[in-house]
Design a protein around this nucleic acid. Structure first.
Lengths: 195, 195
DNA sequence: ATACCAATCAACAGTGTGTTGAGTGGAATC
DNA sequence: GATTCCACTCAACACACTGTTGATTGGTAT
């Protein structure tokens, strides 16, 4: 059903997104104009507006795509299974998959989380992890049972900690392998749990 | 030495910053124009450029000020003393001071860390805590000694976790008192340390 | 052949930018 | 008391980016 027109559109959007990503490595989101994008993509400026409302919409769609793909990897990750495996000294395959996905899309994560750019991707990502992972985690296990700190604070605390790990990884230029990261993550989670 | 001219300049800059802050509550940083700012501040648009290069410079100066003031509170906080006190069940007065400073400047922190605004304040704040606090913390104590995870990852992890706590506090509209926050923070730090 | 569709092109009014040069009024200096 | 100084005002400037429009091109499907 993918007509040649659909492919044409896909190709154009791909060019736009790639050029945009490239530009975001150099400049602020704010300093990147639609003009810049379309010139880099070698398309007419008017064409941009056939696909996106404005550059906010473009960024939003790209972020949305990144997160919805991440969701697919994350939903396979069962907190209870993960912890069970961890107790046996194994690393859940699905946990590695999550880090592998991040590695595969490192360019996007780096740019969207980079200090110049991103408007709210950090918050968005954090919210995402709280909803799709941490909440499950905290409900399915007697997590943090030893600490008299409200749920929402613990959730924010743990999620931010996890994000901090990922940010450091991205900043280090992905020097570690996804397996190493998964192991590191398990260690920390486990370490926090084991009180 | 504060001539009447200096006061005049201070007053104008104050008006600009206040109007800017107010506008950032409503709109994106990007959607706030210099025009908007000067109209709200009831000054001539040209006057803005007598004090700031552009709106980036304005934001930068405001962030810088917030962090350099925070630094003064933070440098009094000795990690070893903090942990010593914690062992005795006390909360370090200086730890409370840090949260009190954040409470006092909540408006700014909320806006700069808000999802719409801020370009890199989160990263800046994180970097700030890593340098001014976490590094000291980790060197002065045998922290995380039970976990085989590299220093930089632990540092990023712990700092993000701490920031997560603060973000949640700001999001909750500062429902807790600075003392309660300090206690919560000590509990988590202590909890992590006590392995 | 003809209707379709993505993309092109040129032109549009509107808005914001940063800068300039002349002018205002109060404060400090002589 | 005249003059200089200074923050600020005001109007105007060229320039850049925006989002939209209507006409056009060149392949593709009917």
């Amino acid at each position: 059903m993918a007509s040649i027109y659909d492919e044409m559109v896909e190709k154009t959007k791909e060019k736009i997104q790639q050029s945009f990503l490239q530009l975001l490595k150099e400049k602020n989101f704010m300093k990147v104009s639609v003009r810049d994008i379309t010139e880099a993509a070698e398309i007419n400026r008017g064409t941009f507006y056939l696909h996106y409302l404005d550059k906010y919409d473009l960024l939003d769609q790209m972020e949305e795509r990144l997160l919805s793909d991440l969701e697919k990897h994350l939903e396979r990750l069962q907190p209870d299974v993960l912890l069970e495996e961890a107790e046996k000294g194994n690393i859940s395959m699905h946990a590695v998959e999550v880090f592998r996905y991040i590695q595969l899309n490192a360019e996007r994560f780096q740019v969207f989380l980079g200090e110049n750019n991103h408007i709210g991707f950090h918050k968005r990502l954090k919210q995402f992890f709280v909803e799709h992972f941490m909440d499950k985690m905290m409900k399915n296990e007697n997590f943090f049972k030893g600490v008299a700190v409200p749920q929402d604070y613990l959730s924010s605390f743990a999620t931010s900690a996890f994000l901090g790990l990922i940010e450091q990884w991205l900043e280090n230029g992905l020097a570690e392998t996804p397996s190493e990261m998964a192991e590191m993550y398990i260690q920390i989670i486990f370490f926090i749990k084991n009180l």
